[in-house]
């Protein structure tokens, strides 16, 4: 396709990449800035990374965010998978439309509304707000994403596989764990990762539902920005970007390897 690359294509690709990645590149570059001012280059330095390591409040916030994301993503994955199975497998039941509406509501609801309604709920039932309320809120928010991902996999799942397991003497509950779950696992994992990422970068809902002692990283960064940005923010952002990039690259490499293996296996099968 080399021939087809006109100057127009090249320009639009360049502009597109610039639009998407220029802010990130600038952010990364300025994290190594020696100057205290974010916009003025004062020479290369890693001092903001050192400063970050000594900033206990920032590290605490990062630790809370990580624990919160792990916990809420796991809970959302379990609940979301169950919801997806109910939606796909139980056919028509009383209140099905209501159920599906409730599941998908957070998908379209503005975060502010979700956050506010959860806050009102927590206040009215008089729960101490903090780590657990944010965890519950994030589970509510991310569960619908897991349900959507898992549901799309279940819809194309060949049910005769489960019937074959039943036919061979495997009871339904065990069939789910030895046949269904291993086969829909990629979708469940994808749902978990989506939930994890969403929880990691949520600011709005966390701000509404949190209490003393449970400040998440996005909240911490946002509050610091209000007092003026130091390159320390750039440093922690760079670390986050690096973690995400490693995750994405690892996932795509893994998929690529599986694809290559699959093609090799198919060639092998063709040869008999």
């Amino acid at each position: 396709m080399r021939k087809g690359q006109s100057w127009f294509n090249t320009t639009s690709v360049a502009l597109g990449f610039a639009f998407l990645y220029a802010p990130i590149v600038i952010l990364v570059i300025y994290s190594f800035n020696d100057s205290k001012l974010v916009t003025v280059w004062g020479g290369f330095s890693t001092r903001w990374y050192v400063e970050l390591l000594n900033d206990q409040a920032m590290l605490d916030a990062a630790w809370i965010t990580l624990r919160l994301a792990l916990l809420s993503a796991t809970m959302a994955t379990i609940l979301g998978t169950l919801a997806a199975i109910t939606m796909v497998r139980f056919g028509r039941f009383l209140g099905r439309s209501l159920f599906s509406g409730m599941i998908y509501a957070p998908l379209v609801m503005p975060d502010v509304i979700t956050g506010l309604s959860l806050l009102l709920l927590f206040v009215s039932i008089d729960i101490d707000r903090g780590f657990w309320t944010v965890t519950l809120a994030h589970t509510t928010l991310t569960m619908c994403f897991v349900a959507v991902v898992v549901q799309s996999r279940l819809v194309v799942f060949d049910r005769s596989l489960e019937e074959a397991a039943l036919d061979l003497g495997c009871p339904p509950f065990k069939t789910f764990f030895v046949i269904t779950l291993p086969l829909i696992l990629p979708a469940v994992v994808a749902g978990w990762m989506l939930a994890f990422t969403l929880s990691l970068d949520d600011l709005v809902i966390a701000s509404f539902t949190t209490g003393p002692g449970a400040t998440t990283l996005p909240m911490k960064i946002f509050s610091q920005v209000k007092f003026g940005v130091t390159p320390e923010i750039n440093a922690i952002s760079t670390i986050l970007i690096t973690i995400v990039a490693i995750g994405v690259i690892a996932a795509s490499l893994f998929n690529k390897r599986r694809e290559v293996e699959r093609q090799k296996a198919e060639r092998l099968a063709m040869q008999g």
Partner: peptide, 30 residues
């Protein structure tokens, strides 16, 4: 009587082989 307690076995049109198991494990499943 549910299918997992019946003395019948079925060969499915789509074969319904368990894709995450080897041939030997598929045969050993029942």
């Amino acid at each position: 009587i549910p299918p997992y307690r019946r003395p019948t076995n079925m060969m499915f049109q789509s074969y319904a082989l368990f894709p995450h198991m080897t041939v030997a494990d598929n045969i050993a499943f029942g």
